[in-house]
Computed example of a mutant assay.
Amino acid sequence: MQPIDTSVIISTYNNPKWLEKVLWSFDVQTYQNFEVVIADDGSNNETAELITSIREKVNFPIQHIWHEDNGFQKTIILNKATVASKGNYLVYTDGDCMARNDFLQVHINKREIGYFLSGGYFKLPMDISKLISEDDIKTQRCFDIDWLKTHGLKSSFKNNKITAKGLKQKLLNALTPTTATWNGHNASGYKTDIIDANGYDERMQYGGEDRELGERLFNAGLNAKQVRYSAICLHLDHERGYVKPEMIERNLKIRATTKNDKLTKTPFGIVKL
């Protein structure tokens, strides 16, 4: 049995219905030498029961990394999951982002020493998010623009994220005005680079906590590749009741220090310096 090449780190908190859909999406990936590490920020037993059940049905190993619920501590659990990961290449995403079946293959094909990859997501409305079944995921019809439009998706330039192929995909990745940043719902890099940066800054809560890690990677000399129109995931809708203005404000100050002092590692990460 060959050693695991890639670890997919999926953050979650008390949303087992969405997490289940995400895990089904990884069961039909064309690239298969990977594990899933679930970074669980204190979910109740329902999530643990789902993971126990689905482990028997999917083709990839699952690690469930959990700590007690003590508010929004996503950065802490992500660091624990990063340390526990067995792959030398890490793909980070969220428990509300279903990956198209070529999602991992794109990350693997585009990876390169000295770079991290920056992707996005395609937001679905709540009614379509609820409607999608295991069969819709396994057949991949939920990634088909015509199927989505049949179920109420409106026409938009953003639909190119799903439909773009070949030259158009390359052009849109090159021309998008969106900066290539470390996005927690769709980013990847070599584990050694993440460890060298000391992982996520554990002082940070919601709002730019992933971007700050990317800013330290840039300070360390890494570059970013844009895969916004090629590594595709669908974002399942949900409320964001955990967002507080003081979180955002504190995070902005930390990010300003990272930028101004050109920090390459945080003293508040995996290892407390």
Rank of each mutant, 00 (worst) to 15 (best):
L234E: 06
A187I: 06
I195K: 11
K253H: 04
A187S: 15
I254H: 09
H235C: 06
A187E: 14
Q140R: 11
C142S: 09
F218I: 11
A180D: 12
I194R: 10
E239N: 14
H235V: 03
Y242D: 14
E249R: 14
T176F: 07
Q226A: 11
A224Y: 05
G199S: 04
F218G: 13
R250S: 08
K130A: 08
A164E: 10
K244F: 04
S133F: 00
G184S: 12
I194A: 06
I137S: 02
Q140I: 00
Y229L: 03
K149N: 04
D193L: 08
Q169N: 04
I254T: 10
K191I: 08
I232S: 03
D144C: 07
I132Y: 01
W147F: 13
L217H: 09
Q169G: 06
I162F: 00
M247H: 14
I254D: 04
K138N: 10
Q226V: 02
I145M: 06
E209V: 03
D210C: 02
E209H: 08
A197Y: 11
R216D: 13
G214M: 05
L153F: 04
L217P: 03
K253E: 05
I162K: 03
I128K: 10
G208F: 00
R141H: 07
D237I: 00
L234G: 02
S129N: 09
G189N: 14
R141K: 14
K253F: 00
D135K: 15
N198P: 11
K191M: 07
P245E: 02
K158L: 12
D146V: 03
L148K: 07
M204Y: 02
K130I: 00
N160L: 13
K161L: 12
I254L: 11
S129W: 01
N198G: 09
D127I: 06
K168R: 15
N159Q: 04
E249G: 03
D127N: 14
D237F: 02
R228Y: 12
K158V: 07
E212C: 13
E202L: 08
L252D: 12
N223Y: 09
D135P: 06
G119I: 08
K168Q: 15
F122N: 05
V243K: 15
K168P: 00
L171S: 09
S188H: 13
L236T: 01
Y200I: 01
E134A: 15
E246S: 08
K165A: 09
L167R: 10
L124I: 00
R141N: 06
L124P: 06
H235I: 07
N198D: 09
E212A: 14
L236A: 04
L234V: 02
E134D: 12
D136P: 10
D136S: 07
S129H: 06
D237S: 07
H235Q: 13
F157K: 12
G120M: 10
A164S: 11
V243W: 05
Y229T: 00
L172N: 09
L234Y: 02
T139N: 13
I128H: 02
L172D: 09
P177K: 11
T176R: 13
G208C: 06
F218H: 14
W147P: 07
D146F: 05
D127C: 06
T163C: 01
A174F: 09
H235Y: 05
G152H: 08
H185Q: 13
G207V: 00
N251A: 03
I254G: 05
G241H: 09
N251L: 04
P125V: 01
P245G: 01
K138R: 15
Y190C: 09
Y242M: 12
C142T: 01
W147Y: 14
I254V: 15
K149D: 00
